[in-house]
Design a protein around this nucleic acid. Structure first.
Lengths: 339, 339
DNA sequence: GCCATTTACGTAATCGTTTACGTTTCATAA
DNA sequence: TTATGAAACGTAAACGATTACGTAAATGGC
């Protein structure tokens, strides 16, 4: 049996409450007593039971992570490990642990969140993907449960603390990069329209076209999963067009990898035949052949700052919602050529 | 205030214990009463408090993950997300959550483990890297705390449940692949010798050389980090040799990526100038240029089976230690040519 | 030397569950 | 009819901490 606070108390000949105060380093306990108690703790190898502590102090020292629903596929995208790395770094500084559940459906994810929130398993949540009309946001807002969103909320923006890039601007710049290289037939390959990030990047793309006097062509706007398969499907769709595009704005590097593969199989060359700029600047973007021109969105910092915001909220419950914008940067490599 | 079991009891006009039994679906409660209680639960939006439940039932329904110490770098290697995916999939089936802490040093990691184990935050642990002389193993063994190791333990093998590949054989095959292509000057690029996986793969490499009648050359055996930088450093070391190798056995794909880059900068071509076979068959191995010949070690399954073993242990505390071997397979792509 | 205040600690309630044991009710057997 | 047992639920003691409140002793002021 692992020793409890009572065992320590008995050995040190004090009451349990005194031991508790020594643990908390309460100044009302004399240095002498503290010494005695600490010795007893060492002798027994005492370690406080977090569960018991949580029950009374009503906090768990852990933050919950809510992944997008395709829980099993999500980890194939290096975005998530990297954002978790950011969250984890900050959490570790604050002595918080991280709790994760996954699920295969929207339903299962929601169930996991209910468990965390109402079961009091975590002190706050970080949501890793912003969707349109996400009922989860209302649920959390209603309960006044601390959370921060990575990505921009679609509704209730003023009430939600979130960390995001300026995706409209980023996408504008990415598109402009292609335009400046002389491209006119530029396609947009995005994720589902239920994702706010897709919408923002689509808007940036459209703004750029408009400013350049290029007419929008709906055939050039396609949506697929943030996976290699998604990139492949997008290419099948776009390359069978009568007038296939010469430039691509792709909202995710992993999709871009799929596109590279597919085009290769089609006998086409990135850069020479078709130019592509993608997003996220995932660690492998540099390694693809050719290396990818990609918008670095500073994934690590996205996670790090989100955690920071969350801890601020937990510590100061009636803090006003805050918005943090993480800077982005277009990293030019070898996937774009002149039109 | 979130409702408690007492609130439900009051509304349903029963005692708290009855509510508890309804939650557990205890057959000793009549269907009628169950119905009434369930209605009360719905009306109040009751959700059991996990912390309180954990305290008395002495289990937490969560498993802890112990990462190698370089917590911030670890996530750059797709091995970890993938193994976590495996663990997470199984855990979700069993209704377990996952708890993670990270740390920057051996010390901090250990502290995190103590917290999890003695603080009773988790019901069991999965250790993600096997090191020689790991004091953690003794600590856990001594406490009879359920855990499973991913990788082969260096000591106390018979007392530890672990999931591993046959790395000696895998490395033997990888090396033989190069030998059969006519290579004689074959180098081994491994991680630190404190990692059991490095030792195993080194042994397989040496066995193959021996069987082929090739003399071992210590200059050809180098050790670096499982990162791209590690691959780079390895190349600096090996290519400055008087007789640089023509074949490489590299124990990690991410290192292999670094090697590809570095050789490119040196003006050398993988396959033509130097052949390479690496390990893990990470999702991006296919995308590198050239695509990498790599040993697929079935990372997902490694995680999945580890979780399975852990749950078995948790459910049947005096189960005998078990060893699971996950099959591997050499995936031949484009990084090897004839000598 | 007496009262007030501070210091240093103890007592006991509490957090929200689970569960061993006790009690009531009612059907059944002898 | 009455003892017996099962069925259905209640009582209360845990689980291992924290903390409001109480109290004894020490200190200080005059």
């Amino acid at each position: 049996m692992t020793p409890t606070i009572k065992d320590v108390a008995k050995l040190a000949k004090v009451s349990p409450s005194t031991v508790s105060r020594v643990i908390a380093n309460n100044p009302r306990i004399s240095p002498r007593t503290k010494e005695v108690v600490r010795e007893a703790m060492n002798e027994l190898g005492y370690h406080p039971n977090y569960t018991a502590r949580s029950l009374v102090s009503r906090n768990t020292q852990t933050v919950g992570l809510v992944m997008p629903s395709s829980g099993d596929k999500v980890f194939q995208n290096p975005f998530f490990p990297e954002v978790i790395r950011g969250i984890s770094t900050k959490s570790h500084d604050k002595n918080y642990g991280i709790y994760m559940t996954t699920g295969n459906s929207e339903e299962e994810i929601a169930q996991g969140v209910f468990d965390m929130v109402q079961g009091r398993r975590v002190d706050g949540l970080i949501l890793l993907a912003s969707k349109v009309n996400d009922p989860m946001l209302d649920y959390l807002l209603e309960r006044d449960f601390p959370f921060t969103l990575i990505g921009k909320p679609h509704e209730r923006e003023s009430r939600i603390t979130y960390v995001d890039n300026d995706n409209v601007k980023a996408s504008y710049e990415a598109t402009m990069h292609l335009i400046q290289l002389g491209h006119k037939r530029i396609a947009f390959v995005g994720g589902g329209m239920e994702l706010v990030v897709t919408r923002d990047r689509l808007n940036g793309y459209l703004d750029a076209l408009k400013d350049a006097g290029i007419e929008r062509c709906d055939d050039y706007i396609v949506h697929h999963e943030f996976l290699r398969e998604g990139g492949r499907d997008a290419m099948y769709e776009l390359m069978s067009l009568e007038n296939p595009p010469t430039g691509l704005v792709v909202t995710d590097d992993v999709m871009a990898f799929g596109i590279v593969n597919t085009l290769e199989q089609m006998g086409k060359k990135i850069k020479q035949d078709i130019s592509m700029v993608s997003f996220n600047n995932v660690i492998f973007s540099e390694l693809a052949n050719p290396s990818l021109t990609s918008v670095d969105i500073n994934i690590f910092k996205l996670g790090y700052e989100a955690a920071q915001c969350l801890f601020d909220q937990i510590e100061q419950p009636n803090l006003l919602p805050r918005r943090i914008a993480i800077p982005h940067q277009l990293v030019v490599r070898n996937s774009c050529g002149e039109a």
